[in-house]
Amino acid sequence: MIFSVAVEIRPLEGIANPEGLTIERALPALGFSGVREVRVGKLLRFELEAADEHHARHEVEQMCEHLLANPVIERADIRLEAIGATK
């Protein structure tokens, strides 16, 4: 199976997020006054070939653990979608 994968890397709860704070302070200057709790992370998209969804998820979890996210400051949320059969 081929999967479309989206990995959302988010700052851990309780970890300061200077990017989010800066955006949160900038928005009111443009008239957007109701914005709170801005957090900036990363979104990685890729395609992955795997036997099934279970294997695909396991492999992406390993990628996150070893490279994609830093567990000291980040968490990773994984979304998978089957988009076709392996040719």
Partner: peptide
């Protein structure tokens, strides 16, 4: 070494 280095406060 423990910990991590993030973006500077104040960006």
């Amino acid at each position: 070494l423990p910990g991590a280095l993030m973006r500077n406060a104040g960006m």
